[in-house]
């Protein structure tokens, strides 16, 4: 993976996204942020993210709907859910909708970073396979 991972952070806690974003940039990621689902979706129109880190509960459009929409529009983009509201139901529902994983705050930075790396690797593998099929 030579290109930098493109990550979109969607969370209404802007302090959190700002701090996390800075740390991830230091680790070589390209990071954009959005403070609600709607803003996240419009950001994706211009920013082809490999991975979206998505808060489940935000004002406005809720996380699951945003997830659904992202997977509809950009099926290869991996979405990692991140939430302060641990809910088994939401977790499984999200996974069924195609989320890569469901993390609960507080999450250790390393764990989150690995998760983003794994999600990006997954996405690029999928792209490679589709590319391969097209050629073949």
């Amino acid at each position: 993976m030579s290109d930098s991972i493109r990550l979109l952070l969607v969370d209404d806690e802007t302090d959190f996204t700002a701090t996390l974003g800075r740390r991830l940039v230091r680790r070589g990621l390209t990071v954009e942020t959005a403070d609600c689902g709607e803003a996240g979706l419009s950001k994706l129109e211009t920013f082809p993210a490999d991975v979206v880190l998505l808060d489940v509960r935000m004002p406005g459009m809720d996380g699951l709907s945003v997830l659904h929409r992202i997977k509809e529009l950009y099926p290869l983009t991996e979405v990692v859910m991140l939430t302060g509201h641990a809910s088994m139901e939401v977790a499984i529902r999200g996974m069924e909708l195609g989320a890569f994983d469901y993390l609960m705050k507080p999450v250790a930075f390393e764990e989150l970073f690995y998760k983003v790396e794994d999600a990006a690797a997954r996405k690029r593998l999928q792209e490679g396979r589709i590319e391969g099929r097209r050629r073949g």
Binding site: A86, S87, M88, A91, I92, M95, D101, Y102, M104
Partner: peptide
Amino acid sequence: QYVRALCTRISTLIFQMIR
């Protein structure tokens, strides 16, 4: 809250394994 988070974490992991 810990119990809830722990059970949710385990469930999520097992679901991933199945997937």
